[in-house]
Amino acid sequence: MRAKTYFHSDSRPFAEGYQTRSLYPYVKRGLEVLLSLGLLLFTLPVMILAAFAIKLESPGSVFYKQERVGHRGRNFQVIKLRSMRTDAEKNGPQWAAKNDPRVTKVGQFIRKTRIDELPQLINILRGDMSLIGPRPERPMFTDQFDKEIPGFKNRLAVKPGLTGWAQVNGGYESTPAEKLEFDLYYIRKQSFKLDLQILWKTVLVVFTGDGAR
């Protein structure tokens, strides 16, 4: 089945005005592959401990896969450590809420520390994601926000990220419209300096748990 895309009928992307012509995205790809490999090896013991804790607390797989919309509208399967009950979406897809009752006790901890996001390093190595970029949304929410927020699909001009300008400045509490503003700012201004700033803010978020649900 052909991946869904978000282009005009004349084949020009909605995000055309946000495409960058600099060489930095290519440099960034090489750096993030090396960094992701290092992080994957460094955090492997943490993921193994988290996986054991998840398995002890609730039945089901320790991993969670979900379809997300990536670069230029191409869908992919994001990989995370499971932080909710296996029947979390028995009533249909829904956004995580503050103090969400579907989140397990182990899930609360790995969400607060962002440990549940670590398997996405595999997505980065596969080329589905970038280390830094807009948060990947689910197809149904991408369609919904695109109807409600003009220009929402412009964030698809770059690969989605494990962390990003929107994630460290607003986190889960930001509205989709607010996240879009952060995302478009990053797409326009992306640079090595800005990426270092985002990585530093990400470290602070991990240690403080700011913005977690």
Score class of each variant (00 low, 15 high):
residue 192 F to E: 01
residue 87 D to R: 13
residue 119 P to Y: 06
residue 146 D to G: 15
residue 184 L to S: 02
residue 147 K to E: 13
residue 101 P to Q: 11
residue 176 P to E: 09
residue 96 A to V: 15
residue 119 P to D: 03
residue 191 S to C: 08
residue 120 Q to A: 05
residue 152 F to C: 08
residue 88 A to F: 03
residue 112 K to S: 06
residue 184 L to C: 05
residue 182 F to K: 15
residue 87 D to E: 14
residue 112 K to T: 07
residue 185 Y to V: 02
residue 95 W to T: 04
residue 182 F to G: 01
residue 161 G to W: 05
residue 123 N to E: 10
residue 115 I to Q: 09
residue 94 Q to G: 13
residue 115 I to H: 10
residue 159 K to G: 02
residue 167 Q to I: 03
residue 174 S to K: 07
residue 159 K to W: 00
residue 165 W to A: 01
residue 109 F to K: 08
residue 203 V to H: 12
residue 92 G to E: 09
residue 93 P to W: 04
residue 100 D to I: 07
residue 81 L to H: 06
residue 195 D to S: 11
residue 79 I to Y: 12
residue 112 K to E: 02
residue 113 T to Y: 08
residue 187 I to E: 04
residue 97 A to K: 15
residue 172 Y to M: 09
residue 208 T to S: 15
residue 135 R to H: 04
residue 157 A to F: 03
residue 201 K to M: 14
residue 126 R to Q: 14
residue 203 V to C: 15
residue 186 Y to Q: 04
residue 206 V to C: 15
residue 176 P to V: 07
residue 138 R to N: 07
residue 179 K to C: 04
residue 154 N to K: 07
residue 93 P to A: 13
residue 124 I to L: 10
residue 86 T to V: 15
residue 145 F to H: 12
residue 194 L to V: 15
residue 173 E to M: 09
residue 148 E to L: 14
residue 86 T to Q: 14
residue 151 G to M: 03
residue 156 L to D: 00
residue 149 I to T: 05
residue 113 T to Q: 09
residue 158 V to F: 01
residue 80 K to D: 12
residue 178 E to P: 01
residue 143 D to P: 12
residue 121 L to M: 13
residue 146 D to Q: 11
residue 81 L to R: 05
residue 130 S to C: 01
residue 90 K to F: 01
residue 179 K to A: 03
residue 187 I to F: 08
residue 102 R to Q: 07
residue 169 N to W: 10
residue 125 L to M: 13
residue 98 K to C: 02
residue 84 M to H: 11
residue 193 K to V: 11
residue 200 W to L: 14
residue 121 L to E: 13
residue 80 K to F: 06
residue 114 R to E: 11
residue 133 G to P: 12
residue 160 P to W: 00
residue 89 E to H: 12
residue 143 D to L: 04
residue 121 L to C: 15
residue 142 T to H: 09
residue 181 E to D: 12
residue 144 Q to M: 14
residue 174 S to V: 09
residue 113 T to A: 14
residue 85 R to E: 01
residue 127 G to M: 10
residue 161 G to R: 06
residue 193 K to S: 05
residue 99 N to Y: 06
residue 144 Q to W: 08
residue 208 T to G: 11
residue 105 K to M: 11
residue 182 F to P: 03
residue 171 G to C: 07
residue 198 I to Q: 10
residue 154 N to V: 00
residue 163 T to V: 04
residue 95 W to L: 14
residue 133 G to L: 04
residue 116 D to G: 08
residue 149 I to H: 07
residue 122 I to Q: 00
residue 164 G to W: 07
residue 181 E to I: 08
residue 132 I to K: 02
residue 101 P to C: 14
residue 137 E to H: 10
residue 93 P to F: 02
residue 155 R to S: 03
residue 82 R to G: 12
residue 192 F to N: 02
residue 110 I to Q: 13
residue 136 P to C: 02
residue 151 G to D: 01
residue 178 E to N: 06
residue 204 L to W: 05
residue 156 L to A: 00
residue 98 K to T: 13
residue 119 P to M: 05
residue 88 A to E: 06
residue 157 A to V: 03
